[in-house]
Nucleic acid binder design. Structure first.
Lengths: 154, 154
DNA sequence: TTGGGTGCAAAGGCTTTGCATGTGA
DNA sequence: TCACATGCAAAGCCTTTGCACCCAA
């Protein structure tokens, strides 16, 4: 999670990067909101509360940096925004941790942990010779709350 | 596949839409290239060969229309372009047909057919009450050709 | 000291929209 | 005829980039 400031400092230093107020502030916003899928603008707004001087460009640059360092995961819901959340893994390893349930009614996004895809990946390797390193799975449907509301309305 | 012009005319008429030269031309470009993932600009370039008068805006509008009609599937490779391919299903049904293998080395995109996810969807329903209607699966890794080239180089 | 980092504003690049004109039914 | 469709150009919108100033190390 790299909620540990010391780990964060080390990671940056190790890559020849500086530990700035802005970077720490952006990380904090993300660490405090695990599982939320924030756009750059939303992150910007949260950071501005405590650091009004920050620029949107810095948020974009920092998020991209964090993404390269493996600190955040990207999520694209095809609504014109790229979204970010703090990575489940702390290390810069491209682990298997992308399952998102997206409700077509209310737009809510849920996470789901499952490693069933390992079997699929094995089959792909056998049949095509393609080695899977990472995956992104988006499942569209209807969440429990929306289904309950719908059946009540009927 | 709706490679059948008659089906295409019927589908448009049924929705109160007109069968225009442009729409037919764009569909033809897509039908002739199954499994290719074309950007709007690429479709535009192909259509222009035979119909130089067409405008890019028409391509965007038509593709969006086709998407709503279920004639094309969208694919987002996070490179700034939205890509389209003719739908495997002809009907406006959101079927289960999204598995893409994306090579991190050469960028090639392969399709893979598999319904292993049905088991995952059942599990999700049981554990969360979320009903999955459609899914998009992107698997990132290394294709056979790139792996072969790599091992040869070493 | 000094090279990386930041803020601001301008530029980019894909996509959408307004509007006058064109055209299928 | 006439509502829908098209072309062109302008506008939108998210994101990136240029540049002068700033500040961790």
């Amino acid at each position: 999670m790299t909620g540990n400031p010391e780990q964060f400092r080390e990671l940056l230093k190790k890559n020849g990067l500086k530990v700035t107020t802005q970077r720490a502030a952006i990380l904090e916003v993300l660490v405090d909101r695990p599982g939320m899928h924030l756009t750059a603008e939303e992150i910007y707004d949260f950071v501005k509360i405590r650091h009004p001087e920050i620029g949107l460009a810095t948020v974009y640059r920092t998020i991209q940096l964090f993404s390269e360092l493996g600190l955040v995961d990207k999520l694209n819901l095809d609504d014109g925004f790229v979204r970010y959340e703090i990575s489940k893994e702390s290390a810069p390893v491209h682990g298997h941790h992308h399952h998102h349930l997206i409700c077509l009614d209310c737009g809510a996004v849920f996470a789901f942990q499952d490693d069933l895809l390992e079997a699929l990946e094995t089959r792909i390797l056998e049949q095509t010779g393609f080695v899977v390193q990472d995956h992104e799975v988006k499942l569209y449907g209807r969440c429990e709350a929306c289904r309950a509301m719908q059946s009540k309305a009927e």
